[in-house]
Design a protein around this nucleic acid. Structure first.
Lengths: 217, 217
DNA sequence: AAACTGCCAACTGTCGACAGTTGACATGTT
DNA sequence: AACATGTCAACTGTCGACAGTTGGCAGTTT
């Protein structure tokens, strides 16, 4: 029996969740400003907790703060995307290596399951749900069992989601991603850390390039 | 002429700087609690800005927040140190690779300068100033020219400083670190990314082990 | 004496109001 | 007409006060 564990989060905590959702879904559009009094009223809280929520999201990179001007939903240049993916690559390649050397059998099964479900959704001709891509990377991170890396990956993933102007992944790219995922799982199954890292790097390089082109068009 | 550029930081910003200094220097000892009203009075500000400062430092990992209890200076188990160094290794190995492929000649000169000054201070028999170790890694990061990685490295470095219970690096370890640094610079000078990464990994592995033993004694 | 219960002080979480700054518009000037 | 200046509304930065929760202590029970 866990200790009580605050049944309701603090107002600031709730505000963080609501705002994060609104930012990530685009309900608060890119480039727009977050008005403190307005949003506070809309959430039914005062400005204090809302300010803390805004600061928190800013620390996650989901908002940028301008002194005396307020908080804005950031938009990214191609150069930003490239730099962000350098970070993501560093983190996820390390995670892939660790996963290859630490994975349990149930980790492996989970990864294979996600890949299988991805393929099922893909061959069904439906638009490949980004949800499954996230699930794959999430599962891989858990297999790496490195909490600090996991936390940073989560934050970077969020920023990537924020930049995803487009669900408009083209099928060829999706197909390549599925193959990458499968190859990653095989490398991890073999405990081949070097190959896992190499494949992850190639995978993310492709995703980055795809994202940049879809941003500039 | 840059625009006015807030001559005085916000009170919250100032509080962040003061508190960070106090936490990192140990003026606020590990495990102790930060009393909001007390510290607010001491800093001559109200609780609002101080709370924002505390939240900010918590997001940097320099404080941990406990609901309804307050903010504490965290202490780390050996397992924490290991996990933290997995993150640091991921980031700095990537930085070393990038530095090897992007470094300019002036980057190289800077790195060599830091190494030279380190050796001067070492052979002089003085306790090797941690300052110079930080300077080396900082210079390397700048040579990598990857802003997001740089920012994360800065945060991790801070947390490492927080855990440095000891300036008590033993000379043999220091000597090995100096050699590592020199070898890193050579790899970067040669543009050998793979070797730079390998050396960095070995270097951080050694530092991590040393830090764990000095924590447990 | 050990354990449980009820109370209390201290502190965090939250609120509403005031003060200072910013960008924009209107007015006046060359 | 273009530019400089003065004015203003909107918003952020900050403050002091109130409310709810937590951990500890005193008193009671077994």
């Amino acid at each position: 029996m866990t200790p009580p564990a605050p049944l309701h989060l603090s107002l600031a905590g709730q505000a963080v969740d609501v705002l994060r959702e609104q930012v990530l879904t685009g309900e608060i559009p890119t480039g727009s400003r977050v008005n403190e009094v307005e949003v506070a009223q809309k959430l039914g809280i005062s400005r204090g907790p809302l300010r803390e929520a805004i600061r928190h999201l800013a620390s996650e990179g989901l908002l940028t703060l301008v002194p005396h001007r307020g908080a804005f939903v950031p938009d990214a240049s191609p150069e930003d995307v490239r730099a962000l993916f350098e970070l993501r690559t560093a983190l996820e390649c390390a995670a892939a290596e660790l996963a290859a050397s630490r994975r349990t059998d149930v980790d492996l099964v989970r990864l294979q399951d996600v890949c299988a479900e991805s393929r099922r959704n893909y061959t069904a001709g439906q638009p490949f749900p980004y949800r499954l891509d996230l699930a794959f990377h999430q599962t891989l991170i858990e297999a790496a069992r490195s909490p600090y890396i996991a936390e940073q990956v989560r934050l970077v993933q969020q920023r990537v989601v924020l930049l995803r102007s487009a669900l408009d992944d083209d099928p060829p790219h999706q197909h390549a991603s599925l193959d990458d995922h499968d190859e990653l799982v095989r490398a991890i199954a073999d405990g081949d850390a070097a190959r896992a890292s190499t494949v992850m790097r190639r995978h993310l390089s492709r995703v980055c390039a795809q994202m940049i082109t879809s941003l500039t068009h």
